[in-house]
Design a protein around this nucleic acid. Sequence first.
DNA 1: ACACAACCGGACAGCCCATTCCACTTGGCT
DNA 2: AGCCAAGTGGAATGGGCTGTCCGGTTGTGT
Lengths: 227, 227
Amino acid sequence: MEPSPESPSCERARRLRSDAEQNRERIVEAARAVYRREGLGGSMAHIARTAGVGIATLFRRFPDRSELVAAVFEDAMEANLAAAVEARGAADAWEGFSGYIETVCGLQAENRGFAEVLTMNFGSAKGLERRRQEAFDAFLELIDRAKAAGRLRADFTPEDFLILLMANAGVLGAAGDAAPEASRRLVGQMLRAFAAEGSGDLPPSPSPKRLLRGIVRRRRASGAASA
Amino acid sequence: MEPSPESPSCERARRLRSDAEQNRERIVEAARAVYRREGLGGSMAHIARTAGVGIATLFRRFPDRSELVAAVFEDAMEANLAAAVEARGAADAWEGFSGYIETVCGLQAENRGFAEVLTMNFGSAKGLERRRQEAFDAFLELIDRAKAAGRLRADFTPEDFLILLMANAGVLGAAGDAAPEASRRLVGQMLRAFAAEGSGDLPPSPSPKRLLRGIVRRRRASGAASA
DNA sequence: ACACAACCGGACAGCCCATTCCACTTGGCT
DNA sequence: AGCCAAGTGGAATGGGCTGTCCGGTTGTGT
């Protein structure tokens, strides 16, 4: 008989000692904060320091960076899935379609790490990829419904959505302080392009000065532009 | 009397010794290649190695990274300026407007470093910033003409263009092998959003497989997603 | 209370990077 | 031919990062 693998927080392999479990959570929390601010480029060493644990502890618990990423963003991906499912149930097909896109891009805007996660593939992280796939499936239904309702252009493809996620991540990374407005503006423009008919208002542009200031600010922050 | 500061290639401060000038050119050429492939994140050491010169030589000639970037991309920025000026002279205002946008985004697609340069500010590099400003001024005229012709939406702002450059850089960085198609598709969508009327065809989406493969590929290459 | 497996964190090795320093070489002028 | 300022490359310094090792600590079941 194995010591019932369920209870505490999840389906972890064989249950950790209580202090280890606490450390694990401190690590995930620290990584969450670091990734949100700095993107997935944040270093293991920095995360360990932030969590107040030794480096070895981090590597013992998460031998591979992608495992940590998966642990950190499973809840954000769950939020994404929930948004897709809710949108699928919306009465108005276009409302569902456009609302979902706005929500996802908003999640990206709030969290630089998640913006990157949405444009990458983590084959090994099953929970993450399952949720991503389910959300995507729901989105495919949204597409069909919005097209059937004559609100979405017939030439829209699911890849257009992925491209928008990449584009939005780029804007968020480049626009500095003005990122939220710039992102909303981008999404508004893209929705206009996707819509079959004369579509409504656009969110306002960031002011020239704000956008410029954001650009300048990035000079020292980036790892390339990082790259 | 000073030894006539003009002749060789440019208005450099006081003319280098011939071997030094040759090294300078080898450095710029190496940096051009590295930046094109890897973006501005490419390391000084790597560039020096590629150029076949000592590290000190690189730092003596370009004490600040941004000076090297300026030297490398002055010609690309000149091409950008030329495209803007030519577009300003186009007979059809919308052709000029949309053609210029396609050209600039194409320059980004060909050169990862330049894609980043276009979303950053290098206050100290006067030649670069002057050309950028002149190109932008020409673009402002394009906007006015296209709006006056009723082809460009009245709510288009110059910031929309900057946002598109950032978005395009993001797509190029994230889409891997499928980047060229993804970029063209993004530009086509945005032009649709900008156009006042029913606009024409869209470039095709990259196939789902291609786009996905690009995403996966990026896993090891990126410095963060550097950015 | 005890023993031991699980766990901890600092130290360390190996890498890459930016930046400075310095002893040596060389182009160009006389 | 010979001088010397200009120029050179490599070594050295100091930093950060990943990933592993190991002597010591602690939770936990008995």
